[in-house]
Write a protein that binds this DNA or RNA. Structure first.
Lengths: 137, 137
DNA sequence: CGGAATCCGTGATGATACTG
DNA sequence: CAGTATCATCACGGATTCCG
């Protein structure tokens, strides 16, 4: 989830090694965390529709603070998922878009987001059942 | 990410309303957070392979603490993604498996996890480029 | 407008110990 | 074995301020 420190790969690490998200110190963990982070998912999904400015993203994604959006976008940019284009004008204009790599992940998280939206009621129903059973206990 | 308080739906809420993850107070947000949570993703992916006991999950998912695994599984169970079967034997034996609903999400997060594993090197390369550019600045 | 920097609360996280 | 309880920490995330 954090934007910071990733475990450094040792030089001896063979390029052919299969990354394993189940291994605590595998870099894939950190990447997955960025992608599946609270705002990461929504940012990627939003950018899938089209290129957006910072303030547009802020508006589209309900509830993000400037800080978290900036932080999230930086992490995604560093990971090569998002392209940041800053135009040297006043007032500043910065546009965010998906890289080819980012488009691939975005499609997946977008699908996940849509799936969730479409199954909210089933989950809500499951919760009621669960809570009722717990209360009866 | 939290396991706790979900916004209560008002009775007037029409069942036909399309849930929107971009709305801050939509329940879909919470659901998505459970699914994409750090350990939620890995737990769902692990259960996609087959039914597992608590301690098995703990071993398979590198780095989880007992507390977080229990917490994660409870959230997923409450949301109707995971089925928990406790056998009244000594020593205790509890098996976790996916519900049909859970299987659907699990397939998606599994795909995401595998995609990530397969693109670690591209991301790592992107980071080097990014960091180099930043250092040069 | 698009951030960066700072301060700061609080809730998520994890180690440890305990229980059925 | 499968948790729960307790506690300490720290990073997530919000609010505010400042800058190009």
């Amino acid at each position: 989830m954090s934007v910071s420190n990733q475990a450094q790969r040792q030089p001896r690490e063979p390029v052919t090694t299969v990354a394993d998200v189940n291994t605590a110190d595998c870099p894939s963990r950190g990447i997955l965390d960025h992608v599946t982070s609270r705002w990461g998912v929504l940012a990627l999904a939003a950018l899938l529709e089209d290129t957006r400015r910072f303030s547009e993203l802020r508006r589209v994604i309900g509830g993000v603070s400037e800080k978290m959006l900036a932080q999230t976008l930086q992490a995604l940019e560093r990971d090569g998922f998002v392209h940041r284009e800053a135009y040297p004008v006043i007032p500043p204009r910065v546009e965010y878009s998906l890289t080819p790599l980012g488009t691939e992940v975005a499609r997946q998280v977008w699908a996940l987001a849509r799936w969730t939206e479409g199954h909210v009621h089933e989950v809500l129903a499951a919760r009621e059942t669960y809570d009722a059973a717990k209360a009866a206990r």
